[in-house]
Design a protein around this nucleic acid. Sequence first.
DNA 1: TAGGCCATCTGGTCCT
DNA 2: AGGACCAGATGGCCTA
Length: 414
Amino acid sequence: MGTRCWHECHSSKREGKGREGGRVRVREGKGRADHSIAEKRECAELSSFFQFGSLRVKKLKRRFRGDIWEHARYMLTRGNMLTLPFEEPHIMCEPRFGANYPRESLPESLEQERQHNPDRSNSDMREVEDDISDRDEDEREDDQDENGLPKKRGPRKKKPGKEQVDRAKLRRQEANARERSRMHGLNAALESLRKVVPCYSKTQKLSKIETLRLAKNYIWALSETLSAGKRPDLLAFVQTLCKGLSQPTTNLVAGCLQLNARNFLTDHNGEVMFSGRAPYDAMYSYPGSDMNTPPGHSGSSLDSSAKPFRHYSYSSAYETYYENQSPESGSPHFDGQLSPPMNFNGIFSLKHDDPPEYGKNSHYGMRYCSAPGRTALAHNSMYRVSPEARFPYDLHVRSQSFQAQGEVNGSFHN
DNA sequence: TAGGCCATCTGGTCCT
DNA sequence: AGGACCAGATGGCCTA
């Protein structure tokens, strides 16, 4: 994945691969005879360069085990002068970077630095010379902070050893794997949720956020229906489902329910509006005498002639119809304070022990426990399938198989 | 090409 | 100390 590329890129930055590459050292591999000649020459060069006496140069050279030029570079670039191309292996890897590093091969920046700030060079070298600690080269590099400025002295923080670094890397990798696994589990749970909300489609998956919204709406609608004990109207149910969903998801839901998606427009507030003729007028009757008019269509509340494309406002209708608050209707704190009434008293329950085949056969829908006495309820389901409309969310007894179920599943799970 | 969605990495925080 | 959880960052993929 691209993440890996990103990771590699950034990890190499974090791990300082470029810089590490610049620290490759090619030590002098010459014979003893050559070495003495080269040493004299080098001492002369160093003496001239740093304006040191030859004795001092020898001392420094002994201390730095022949890498005097590199350390000279290092010391000159201490402070905020880390401008030399340590990252350029082609420079650092060349054999000349050993004791025989010719004076004229010094990078320009180094030479310029020496010319512009000779005192600095000398003082830095003296500082190193006087520092009799046995810090290794890596520790010496740690004298710089992230800006390259010298760090203040103090109790030295013990640098983690290689084992500790490796262990930290390993732990990070393990944590990443755990996090991956955790997210996979989360996604699996989300996938199972997708299968039990309306509009499950393998080809057109709902996004995570839409799945959660739809599930919440679905729970709300079912719970409200059960608590009301009345047969709700299709439109209110669908509009509850689509509450807060994006227009594409609303279309999908409407499509799954074989309704005209254009009738369920989502306005800029996430409000689901019905903008068409009420198709259920002829198909559905309403439970009570006061419910003979679809929610929102009681002439007094809305003037349908004045607002031909907003015959039905979800929120007001929902509240009127259910005498309850709809999800998120005017309250941004719905999730916490206005959780839908749950009916877990055996009538409606979430099934956690569904056998796999059950999920295949009924991905959605209210699921009834096959508790005694529930059959009648199911038979008197509040949701009834109109033969014409093939209203797809018929309640069904868990153990029963309805003919409509196949159609229903086909509608929701195309 | 911009925007949405997603997977992954990562560091911080909290908890056991 | 180590694991779970979380949120931010980032890049890839896809689509309108």
